[in-house]
Amino acid sequence: MFRHAARVLLVSLALPAMTVAAAAEDGPTARFIVVEGSGEAQAVPDMARLSAGVVTRGHSAREAMAGNAEAMGRVMGALRAAGIADRKVRTDRLSVTPVYDQSRTRAEPRAPIAYQATNTVEVTVNDLGHIGSLIDALVNSGANQLQGVQFGIRDAAPLEDRARLAAVADARRKAALYAEAAGVTLGAVLRIEERGAQLPGPRMMAAARMVQDTAVAPGEQTINVGLAVRFAIE
Rank of each mutant, 00 (worst) to 15 (best):
164 R>M: 08
80 R>V: 10
205 M>I: 05
75 V>Y: 00
106 R>S: 15
86 D>G: 09
87 R>P: 09
171 A>H: 15
137 A>M: 09
156 A>I: 14
91 T>H: 12
109 P>Y: 08
172 R>W: 03
115 Y>L: 05
114 A>R: 00
210 M>V: 15
108 E>D: 05
124 T>N: 11
83 G>M: 12
130 H>Y: 07
197 A>L: 07
177 L>E: 15
168 V>K: 14
185 T>W: 03
195 R>D: 13
117 A>N: 01
207 A>S: 11
185 T>G: 09
106 R>A: 13
154 R>I: 00
191 R>W: 05
123 V>K: 12
128 L>H: 09
111 A>I: 06
168 V>C: 08
171 A>E: 14
104 R>F: 05
165 L>F: 15
166 A>P: 04
116 Q>F: 04
128 L>C: 10
142 G>A: 02
91 T>F: 13
174 K>F: 11
102 Q>W: 05
172 R>N: 04
166 A>C: 06
167 A>Y: 10
164 R>P: 04
152 G>I: 00
96 V>W: 07
89 V>A: 01
182 A>F: 13
191 R>F: 10
199 L>Q: 13
141 S>Y: 00
207 A>M: 03
126 N>E: 14
196 G>I: 04
198 Q>F: 09
134 L>H: 03
198 Q>H: 13
148 G>D: 06
196 G>D: 05
